[in-house]
Simulated assay, not measured.
Amino acid sequence: MQEAISFLVAKEPVFKSLQQQYTTFFIPSRPSGFVTLCKLILEQQVSIDSAKACFSKIENLLGTVSPETIIPCSDEDLKSCGVSRQKISYLKILSEAVSSELDLDSFPSKSADEVRNELIKIKGIGHWTIDVYLMFALQSPDIIPLGDIAVVNTIKELFDVHTKEEMEKLSQSWKPYRTMATFMLWHHYLEKRNRKPFV
């Protein structure tokens, strides 16, 4: 972690300024596996608090959240937990995939591209979900989630760069530590808004 910060601070004055401003940065982490992917599906396009409330209700309903408990659960029961019809479908599709061909336990030994290629085939799991899973659960060191509104807005604010193409080009100089760059940008975004970390 410190190696990544030192690299970014030496490379980019904006990161040097952030380090001087905050000293330390919140580094998010989640366990790898099925439950984290379920939580990320619930977090798509809603507030973290709302997603947490949904998951807590699902957990109370099922006891253990697993493919074996989600697959037989009725849509109505899941809907009563505050889950939308679309996300119920996504949770069930993920559950079926994990029960058959998707081996989540193999992901830590695979490259980020290999993990992405497997997960993107699952309906309901897009690049934002994959990026966050790679960063939080698999600790992939070089991810820049340009589908994340907080990252995009913070890059606009701090670098005066406004298109995804320009952001991608800018981030090339942060390799191979773009994940740490993302954490620094997120930290700034949350601090400016007086918001708590979302993990």
Rank of each mutant, 00 (worst) to 15 (best):
D160P: 08
F34M: 04
S84I: 00
S66Y: 03
K11M: 12
P28C: 06
L138H: 05
P176R: 09
P197Q: 06
L37F: 12
T179C: 00
K169D: 12
Q19I: 00
D105W: 06
A137Y: 13
K110A: 07
K169C: 08
S95I: 12
K39E: 07
I48T: 14
D142I: 00
P145L: 10
C38I: 08
I93H: 11
I155A: 02
I143P: 08
S140D: 11
F136V: 01
K110C: 13
V132S: 13
A10K: 14
L158R: 05
Q20F: 08
R178K: 08
T179Q: 10
Q19W: 06
L42I: 11
S173Q: 14
S66R: 07
P72W: 14
I71V: 15
L91C: 06
G63L: 09
E3K: 08
E12R: 05
F55R: 10
V14W: 04
L18I: 08
N117G: 04
E12S: 08
Q2G: 14
S47Q: 13
I58N: 15
K164R: 05
A97R: 14
W174D: 01
T154G: 00
P31F: 13
F25D: 07
P145S: 11
A181G: 10
S99F: 10
G63Q: 03
S99N: 14
K92W: 04
M180K: 13
S29G: 05
G82N: 09
L62Y: 04
R85D: 11
T64P: 05
I120V: 13
Y133C: 07
I120R: 07
T64F: 05
Y90K: 14
A150I: 00
A181W: 00
F159I: 10
F159L: 01
I143C: 05
L185W: 06
L170V: 02
G63M: 12
E118V: 02
M1P: 12
L190A: 13
L119R: 08
I130Q: 13
K11S: 03
E118K: 12
L134R: 10
S74D: 13
K87M: 07
E96N: 15
L102T: 11
P28T: 07
Q45V: 04
E191T: 08
D75K: 15
G124I: 03
L8M: 06
S74R: 15
Q20E: 14
K92G: 15
S111F: 04
S99C: 06
N60E: 15
E157I: 00
K164M: 09
S140T: 10
K79M: 13
K169Q: 07
L158C: 11
L18C: 05
E101I: 07
Q45G: 06
